[in-house]
Design a protein around this nucleic acid. Sequence first.
DNA 1: CCGCTGATAATCT
DNA 2: GATTATCAGCGGA
Length: 213
Amino acid sequence: MASTRLPRSYLQRPAEIVARELIGASLLVDGVGGLIVEIEAYDRTDPASHSFRGPTPRNAAMFGPVGHAYVYRSYGVHWCLNFVCGVEPGGAVLIRALEPRWGLEIMRERRGLEAETLLCAGPGRLTQALGITGEHNSLALHAAPFELRPASESPPVIVGPRIGITRGAETPWRFGWAESRYLSRPFRWETSAHKKSEPPEGASVHPLAARQA
DNA sequence: CCGCTGATAATCT
DNA sequence: GATTATCAGCGGA
């Protein structure tokens, strides 16, 4: 597989722009990985962000150079992977789901025999499948074991509020590949047309995403 | 398909 | 002492 590497300057833009454009990009760790189908954006001005209250030992990588990883432990159990990005310090995008593509057997071993749709459908699941731990925190994304390649084409992107947060819950900074079977959770108004939920203010759906019976 | 609950420990107040 | 950028398992529709 010939590799077009993602330029680091790609990440030197506002986190919500980076997040949207990384849908469809490829992420590999030691050759194991897939296509990014779901991402959330966070930045220093955002009450939901780990960087909101300034630097601490845990979030130090968020205030380090753009283009490095920020890996943290979630609920004492799971690892979560972010790409440090943004114009100002304190920005990052949380990788929430991949479409598994390379190293499927290794992923199944690490996760236990399981349906392909669940291998990387969630921030904690994908780090387990790719073998990401705290040892990857602050490592550069432009060198081994990471490999990051831009999307070859722009997929239909759907937008919505972020998952599992209390503060800043209305901000529509969750981005997904609209037709993907590999999301951590569906985007609400995408699945239940007869439910009473409408897209939140400011949220938008790519034309191709507006289908579903 | 959808929603609820317990587990579990680092982090910060 | 409270909160948490989650997950698997279970039960109900």
